[in-house]
Design a binder for these strands. Sequence first.
DNA 1: TTGAAAGCGCTAACAG
DNA 2: CTGTTAGCGCTTTCAA
Lengths: 340, 340
Amino acid sequence: MSKKLSIRDIGKELGISITTVSFILNGKAKEKRISEALTEKVLKFVEEVNFKPNMMAQGLRTGKSKIICLMVEDISNNLLFAQVARLIEEEAHSKGYRIIYCSTDNKTEKAIELIRLFRDRSIDGFIITPPEGIEDEIQSLIDEDIPVVLIDRNLPKLKCNYVGIENLNSSYQAINHLITNGFNNIAFVSIESDQMQMVDRQGGYDKAVSGAGLKSFVKKLNFYNSPEQNVSEIASFLTDNKEIDAVFFSTNYIGVWGLQAIKSLKLNIPNDIAVVSFDDHDLFKFYSPSITVIAQPVPELSTHIIRLMLNALKEKDTNIHEIILPAQLIIRDSSTKAVS
Amino acid sequence: MSKKLSIRDIGKELGISITTVSFILNGKAKEKRISEALTEKVLKFVEEVNFKPNMMAQGLRTGKSKIICLMVEDISNNLLFAQVARLIEEEAHSKGYRIIYCSTDNKTEKAIELIRLFRDRSIDGFIITPPEGIEDEIQSLIDEDIPVVLIDRNLPKLKCNYVGIENLNSSYQAINHLITNGFNNIAFVSIESDQMQMVDRQGGYDKAVSGAGLKSFVKKLNFYNSPEQNVSEIASFLTDNKEIDAVFFSTNYIGVWGLQAIKSLKLNIPNDIAVVSFDDHDLFKFYSPSITVIAQPVPELSTHIIRLMLNALKEKDTNIHEIILPAQLIIRDSSTKAVS
DNA sequence: TTGAAAGCGCTAACAG
DNA sequence: CTGTTAGCGCTTTCAA
């Protein structure tokens, strides 16, 4: 167990050439018409001595590292990313890939730096939640034929694999749900951002509100402000617009801020103000009252993400795919008026 | 930008040998007494053409991959792990290391499989939240001089680096806090586990309860049961022991189950039953009433974890370190009786 | 001070 | 069917 075997050792041991061993190990036994008996024997021996080929030698030779980079906004900030990380890892491992992760903090600078850092380190593929302004860098990856899968938000200028949800339609539905339930002054609280998912979520709001001829109330926060500051900004916004009777938060962390703001204002949910948030969260499930949310189908998203990546890596599929899944409106207690 | 340079190319370009380039690139210019002028020139050129050495060739040659494996229970289940992941990544990158992650689901089998998988893939170091029964496998890593840092829970049989918190003392304090606030029938809800951190957390409970001459109420759940089942088990436990007036949950996910159970029983916190949980969580901060918790000092833990690992990797420090930090009892509304 | 050269372990073209 | 062999790009010993 101590001294590492090499493919040469096992060839010597078995009295065959290392080529043969290499072919067998790489599943090219058939193709090279190596006898089944020999194949069997080698495989068995390899199993026995627990031989593992040296990845770095393989990598050096083939130019492939068998490593995929998962670049998210912040692996600790958004449960969505951690869940995706969890769900793609197994599939990747089973296909012989390892996953390294890194967080961009949603900063273009940092993302560019990270992409450059990793591109030159022979990373085979990138799964990325792109910050704004990263198009060129990603295009350069694509130009080098490095598979890229964008997640969570698309970069419309790019022709690139993408897995996400129907943001516009989901928030449209959520707002309509509020309208149906008798709320007429519905606010949209989001962050200052040109990212597609944010634009689309607002698009759904705009469409629903203007479609119903309602007044629009929009508040944009700064992502980089402290949570405390954003909580108080939401509170001021709500105080300044007393006619608001429902509010839609465009991400779960904004929803959490919003709940704090509402609590600080001592408003009752849903009688004083109804609440719907994008993205589910333990807090929303167990809050009193429980909070209506748009939940992303995380397992399905993850499956598509890793499939797309693995397929692109196998080069079986060089087409670009955009996969857009529906999200689910989970209606809980925060968005329906108490029966009067 | 397209064609990859090699150290040979840059040697040729500059009219010097690749050895010289290699020495300079590896900071051995001084040691090898290469003229400062040449060193400067090479460094400048390398910068200019944005040359990055091929990691795999380096790795093949040196036997080091510059990759650290972060093996946690479930990167998506416990915020603690995701936060640690986030906090160690930057430091690791700045030192030229990349981090791959994997989740054991707290299964010994799976952890062993993963360790074997990665050990033979020249991973330079392992940061591990060990499941039970993994001692031998970890020892074999140590025997091969692969740096290991255990986190969250120690393996007392092993002489191994460890970073964690004062579990026993923290829960002792938490229980005493409850006792001080007039609760006399305090329950401890945990999972069936021999892991040190769980044993210690119960140790603190036992010590405080028996020290005060109180009756002990202990409920152990099965980690692998469905959340629903565990919620209902907690509810039954509470129903069967009506005298319980306070409950301590030994992890945050158990705390979340517990809150659900209490809600389903329509008990009032803290008047019917006080609550304290290990590990902080958004839900606990914003719950009504807010939940008293023992919070782990995640940034400090992470700093120590990555420091220990990096030091071990540099072999500057071959000693074994056990770093045990205090946790903080954050007293909120769930554990103090309303003034009467 | 610098250069030549021997591999690290593996893949794959080419030659039997 | 199987073996020989030439590197992949880099580090490092030894020689100059």
